[in-house]
């Protein structure tokens, strides 16, 4: 039997397209969640920081989605991808679509994601796909700051007052079940890792666990059960109920006035 080269390269570019959506959708949805904080943050300094981080994330999402559109070469662009796909076509991690909750919930979500995000981007700087490596190199500088800030908040709230510690502990416990998915690699990712194009989550996982263990210890927060049952499905398009509402709000104008120029 001969291998059909066209089919193989098609499935490769489909895998790449899917992977780029995974990279772009998570910062988009997290950025959108951060926008919901506008005017409601606990201090003016935090309004600035939250908007600033949201800006970085949505800027990164635009780069990834533009590259995804270029890869698919089917007349899409970053805006069409962001504003006209339905929830099952979204490839973001479940963790980023979790509601803002209180400030501790937002910070726990941010910290677990930031640590994963930074290590993943650092790995992607060495991708043999030059476009990916370039976007990652730019984003890595921003995300280094994101992680420093969210880590500081975990520590401040954990090792703050009795009330803040209680809230931080609850937040960490609640979001924990959404962290495992970050390191689950399906065939798409495994293939791309073999090709030297994607980040190997097996290698990132230990780094992430070490980072988290150290921070939680400093924050006097009990480490959640490492063997706890983990939710997954976001990367394959199976989401929590929250995502549909996020998209309904975010996509409103593009859905109500299709193909309009803004």
């Amino acid at each position: 039997m001969t291998i059909n080269m066209d089919t193989q390269s098609n499935s490769q570019s489909e895998a790449l397209y899917d992977y780029l959506l995974r990279l772009g959708d998570s910062p988009l949805i997290l950025g959108q969640r951060l926008c919901e904080w506008c005017g409601h943050a606990p201090a003016l300094e935090e309004e600035i920081a939250i908007m600033n981080i949201g800006l970085d994330l949505i800027g990164q999402c635009r780069n990834w989605l533009e590259l995804a559109a270029k890869t698919a070469d089917n007349g899409q662009d970053a805006d069409k991808l962001a504003f006209t796909r339905d929830a099952h076509q979204y490839r973001n991690l479940l963790i980023v679509e979790q509601p803002n909750g209180n400030f501790a919930d937002t910070m726990a979500r941010q910290y677990f994601y930031d640590a994963w995000h930074l290590f993943t981007l650092e790995a992607l700087c060495n991708s043999n796909n030059r476009d990916i490596a370039e976007i990652a190199a730019k984003a890595v500088k921003e995300v280094r700051y994101h992680l420093r800030r969210s880590r500081e908040w975990i520590i401040r709230l954990g090792d703050g007052t009795e009330l803040s510690q209680q809230r931080m502990q609850q937040a960490i416990d609640d979001i924990w079940m959404y962290t495992g998915e970050m390191f689950e690699m399906d065939d798409i990712e495994k293939t791309l890792v073999q090709e030297g194009c994607a980040a190997d989550q097996q290698q990132i996982k230990q780094r992430w666990l070490d980072e988290v263990a150290e921070t939680l210890a400093t924050a006097t927060i009990n480490h959640p059960d490492p063997d706890a049952y983990m939710q997954q499905g976001g990367k394959q398009g199976v989401h929590t109920e929250g995502l549909g509402f996020i998209l309904a709000e975010m996509q409103f104008l593009q859905r109500a006035y299709p193909n309009a120029t803004w």
């Binding site: 959108q32 926008c35 309004e47 104008l253």
Partner: peptide, 27 residues
């Protein structure tokens, strides 16, 4: 606040980024 009312519904990524930057400036 009146801008926060639309920042989650900005019609394109560019417009969303512009509005977020503006809100950040205002803070």
């Amino acid at each position: 606040l009146p801008e926060g009312n639309w920042v989650t519904r900005a019609p394109t990524l560019k417009r969303k980024l512009q509005l977020m930057a503006k809100i950040q400036d205002e803070a």
